[in-house]
Amino acid sequence: MTSLRERLTAPGLIVAPGVFDMISAKIADGMGFDALYMTGYGTVASHLGLPDAGLASYTDMVTRVRTLAGGTATPLIADGDTGYGGLLNVDFTVKGYEAAGAAAIQLEDQEFPKKCGHTPGRRVIPMADMVKKIKVAVQARESDDFLIVARTDARTAHGLDEALRRAEAYAEAGADVLFVESPETVEEMRRICATIDKPLLANMVEGGRTPILSKAELEELGYKIAIFPGTGFLAAGAALRRTYETIRRDGSSQAIAGDLYSFTEFSKLMGFERVWAFDAEHAD
């Protein structure tokens, strides 16, 4: 299988849907994507029912990385928040995510506890401190195929100039992919791509601060990766609300039976075919 690093050098945009549990991951895994993105927001919401505000621990998240990466074949880009602490924590986190099977880890320059990138009140650590984190992350990995994605959240509170200054410093420190979070216009996105001479990641959050662009538009600007972290769980939430409202209203699922995933196909997706074959082989 082509590694994510190899895919970075090939033409075209890498499109990575957000996955947040094994149902979303298994569905996306069979659809031919070049990468999947383990969204911190969605993973914390689905696993703990909590906001993405630094409440999940390293242990919570590395366990989810191991489950998602172990149950899929597509390279997984995994949200590693701030590295869950200082430099030693970053070292431990990078080693843990790589051993758990991720293809890349995303680290950000927010203060701990962090907040979701398109929400207010984000504060960033000094640039020099994040440069040290990136250098530690690069040294900690076992394989160069394990990518370090460096994210800066400076744009919202400190402006685009500061965000670009940080992104360039993180590139110099050895980050493989740069992620300037929440630019607010297409022109800002164009300036980011014109300034940074390393692969760039665009964060497509419906209802967020950044314009949602087409694949062709993102490629024209110069982005290499586009993640869609919230699209899956927003779609699932909308579908579940409609479904449960119907059941509550009617006391039955008859009206929506045609809209549901086939139970047989869903069972196959979850691996029941092997169970059926095993039972048949070992039947008395």
Rank of each mutant, 00 (worst) to 15 (best):
Phe146Asp: 01
Arg248Thr: 12
Asp161Glu: 15
Glu168Leu: 12
Ala235Pro: 01
Pro199Glu: 02
Leu147Arg: 03
Ala202Asp: 10
Gly207Tyr: 09
Phe146Val: 01
Ala239Ser: 15
Gly237Glu: 05
Ile192Gly: 04
Thr210Ile: 08
Ser252Lys: 09
Ala238Arg: 09
Leu147Gln: 04
Arg209Phe: 14
Ala167His: 01
Ser267Lys: 14
Gly251Asn: 12
Leu160Lys: 12
Asn203Ala: 09
Leu221Glu: 03
Ile148Pro: 05
Val186Ala: 03
Ile227Asp: 00
Cys193Ala: 15
Arg190Met: 02
Arg241Asp: 11
Ser143Asn: 13
Ala216Arg: 13
Ile212Asp: 00
Ser214His: 07
Val205Ala: 05
Glu219Leu: 06
Ala238Cys: 03
Ile148Gln: 06
Val180His: 10
Pro211His: 06
Thr243Asp: 08
Gly258Trp: 07
Glu220Thr: 09
Ser214Glu: 08
Met270Trp: 06
Phe233Asp: 04
Leu269Trp: 06
Glu219Lys: 06
Ser143Thr: 07
Ser253His: 14
Ala169Pro: 07
Val149Lys: 06
Glu188Pro: 11
Gly174Tyr: 09
Leu147Thr: 04
Ser252Val: 04
Thr156Glu: 14
Arg248Lys: 15
Glu187His: 14
Val205Lys: 01
Ala173Leu: 05
Gly237Gln: 12
Thr195Pro: 07
Arg190Thr: 09
Leu147Lys: 04
Val275Arg: 02
Glu220Arg: 11
Val177Asn: 02
Val177Ala: 07
Ala171Ile: 02
Thr195Met: 14
Asp176Ser: 07
Ala154Trp: 06
Lys215Gln: 10
Ser253Ala: 15
Tyr223Leu: 14
Arg209Leu: 15
Leu240Ala: 15
Pro183Asp: 00
Leu218Lys: 01
His158Gly: 00
Asp145Phe: 04
Ile192Lys: 11
Glu181Lys: 04
Lys224Gly: 08
